[in-house]
Design a protein around this nucleic acid. Structure first.
Lengths: 209, 209
DNA sequence: GCCATAATGTACGAACTAGTACGTTACATA
DNA sequence: TATGTAACGTACTAGTTCGTACATTATGGC
């Protein structure tokens, strides 16, 4: 058991992890330009020196934050199995799981929005591989639905993924302007079930229509 | 005719308009924190002094930029009439017009994303009134569709507006991360018609399903 | 033509901010 | 226990950035 090693005052992994954790919050909170390196260092048990020691620059730190955020979110997604369901139930379950997943990780969505403002220039190559399984899973369900004759045949997996993502992301990402414009809180607890069902209805109606 | 007045060296409207125009681009380009007041002033025929004279602060300028952007986009929308069409054709036309509209105004969508990163704290009260007609128009179409017995009865106008907006906004706003993750350009010209039709299909299938 | 004032330009400063030079200490290994 | 190196801390700087004090000029009304 290495679990209860004597605590070290110098621990590469712990220091890096702590910096990443604090940096994730700071970037999600204030955007890339708005985030302050000094502030991140301040909230860590280590110093700014170490931040540059491990990540090289503010930009390098942001790249690491993004990479870790995508990895974490996809890892959590893969624990769910929907393949044993019939196609209609499977795609509805997948859509609704995506819905819950996005609601549970608003910081991740903020990071993605921020990265898009910066034209995706911090996206690491490795992220494509991490995200491929999400599309493959949809592909399997679509194929099953086509073979069963219940889904229309001209739907692409990536595009369906976009339909689902757009709904889930918008609700979280554009919550504040929507509230100001239409006086409606998209994340109100008492509307959540309704929005989740609506998404399932939309996806199923489109595929079976 | 006041059209060809002798050009004035001191023109309140022209100066304000020029500052707003340049500021809109700068904020959309770099985000709120990333935008530089000096850079905005530099690209204007006037100076930073005037920017503060008319808008008070960087924040005041951003509020003005947002307000003008929303006003412009809604004004353009209202020139289109879809009320004379039958409900199914009307809602499809509306969705597809929204689609084209968003594609044509990426800077506006960037500003909205940026404002959401900042939790909507710059949204002026007046914006709600400006945006109300968009929902009212959907409301009319929904009512006609219900009365004709072709639409399901439990759909709310604001929520349908969200469904349409989410699809249109995501395509533009999340273009860069999507490209990096799935190697697909959501704004590629040869896919535009397909995406537009897909949105119409989704909305109509949901409402009539 | 004169004047009140709206509009404008110049020059500057105080605070901030990313990044670094330089020195120190814990730890693994022999 | 000696030592090389990875991990760490302090103090600083060069450049930036929002904002303003102060001076000036154009313009419309009388």
């Amino acid at each position: 058991m290495a679990a209860t090693q004597p605590e070290r005052s110098r621990d590469r992994d712990r220091t890096q992890g702590e910096i990443l954790e604090v940096a994730t919050r700071e970037f999600a909170e204030h955007g890339y330009s708005g985030a302050r390196v000094d502030e991140i260092a301040e909230r860590t048990r280590t110093t700014k020196r170490m931040l540059y020691y491990y990540f090289g620059s503010k930009e390098g730190l942001f790249v690491a934050v993004l990479e870790q955020a995508y990895a974490a979110i996809r890892a959590a997604e893969q624990t769910v199995d929907v393949d044993h369901l019939d196609p209609v139930a499977a795609i509805r379950a997948l859509a609704e799981l995506t819905f819950d997943h996005h609601e549970a990780h608003p910081d991740f969505i903020r990071l993605v929005s921020i990265e898009n403002i910066h034209r995706g220039e911090h996206m690491a190559e490795s992220l494509a591989a991490i995200n491929a399984p999400a599309v493959e899973r949809i592909e399997r369900i679509l194929r099953a639905g086509r073979e069963a004759g219940v889904f229309r045949a001209d739907v692409d997996a990536v595009d369906l993924h976009m339909l689902i993502s757009s709904y889930c992301v918008f609700r979280v990402a554009n919550r504040h302007t929507w509230q100001a414009l239409f006086d409606r809180d998209l994340l109100a607890a008492d509307r959540r079930d309704g929005y989740r069902t609506m998404l399932g209805d939309v996806v199923v109606a489109y595929l079976t229509g």
